[in-house]
Write a protein that binds this DNA or RNA. Structure first.
Lengths: 174, 174
DNA sequence: TGCTTATTGACCGCATACGGTCTTTTCAAC
DNA sequence: GTTGAAAAGACCGTATGCGGTCAATAAGCA
């Protein structure tokens, strides 16, 4: 019974004692940060529900998907492609390899790097989960009026893309 | 030098070997799930950057903020108010208490529950971080054209709220 | 009143997420 | 040609995130 939202029954907000705490700060429910966290949470829940039985997380799917599109990438470049922390990706790759979905071959000409490839099982898995994953994306946007879905996606893409160049996010050596 | 995006240098997508993998599935970068994950990641990075030195995570802030608005809540109700998993919240509360920002008092009339309250230090902390937190929310939306920010927020709020009642998300005992 | 069920908090286990360090290896500059 | 910076992978430590179980307690019901 996939229902991992079960434990997250969000109570409607009835105001609480919002009163005298000095400055009347913005409400939590109106903060973009909180809303984005919720959306991320819902996204994960929908993924887990649609992909029940595949033993595949959304993070693992993203990695597999990118490896298929970039056969032979090394872990560092992959982490940059899909915006995973390098340390995090290490564990993800380890689990993907343990499940037999990817191979890690030594890179010819560079004894540091290991090149990532899908196995036949990995290819099959990606084909099998294609439909469920598509449903996740559909259901995620389903609550929005059809006419607003493209707008939402456009703004979301704009927000994430433009933050890559925000001062303060970029004061790191290229 | 807070720059926790440093390790997440997202490479522009140049197409890779997107070619013959059977069905031409949607691109990862166009999937709402991926974009929401990125937005969440950016949100966390901005929070960490603006709140550098406060030893406070965005999750901990959310909990503190909600406890201030609902003095005396128990952990279970709090988790429902801010949509944290009950297990996760346990650790968060533990850390907040260890840092002296909240108290856990036994609930009169119920020997199971413990009621949560801010300490004076917790109150002060919340006042001190108010401005940085406000900046996080501003910077998060800054890449969007001013006229689109309200639209984005509205759609995001609509998406998260309406998902609470989605069939499949709700097939759990009330 | 006694039994069944629900609620609360405390754990455990696994999977991210991210900052930091270390070793090995490469490469470029001197 | 050696040396120092840069790159790649392997770890470690802490904080979430979430599913599951368990014991103590409370509440509803026969």
């Amino acid at each position: 019974m996939p229902c991992n939202i079960a434990r997250i029954r969000v109570s409607g907000y009835e105001g609480g004692d919002q009163g005298n705490h000095g400055t009347p700060m913005q409400h939590l429910y109106a903060m973009p940060g909180h809303l984005i966290r919720r959306a991320h949470q819902i996204s994960g829940a929908l993924f887990a529900e649609e992909l029940d039985g595949f033993d595949l997380t959304s993070v693992q799917f993203g990695a597999l998907y990118a490896i298929r599109a970039h056969p032979g990438v090394d872990a560092t470049r992959l982490s940059s492609l899909i915006a995973f922390d390098r340390s995090t990706l290490g564990g993800v790759i380890e689990r993907l390899e343990a499940k037999g979905w990817i191979r890690r071959d030594p890179a010819p000409g560079d004894r540091r790097a290991k090149r990532l490839h899908l196995t036949a099982e990995g290819e099959k898995l990606l084909r099998d989960v294609e439909e469920p994953v598509r449903r996740v994306q559909e259901r995620l946007l389903a609550p929005l009026p059809p006419g607003d879905r493209a707008t939402f996606l456009r703004l979301l893409a704009q927000l994430t893309q433009l933050h890559a160049g925000t001062p303060g996010m970029d004061d790191c050596p290229e």
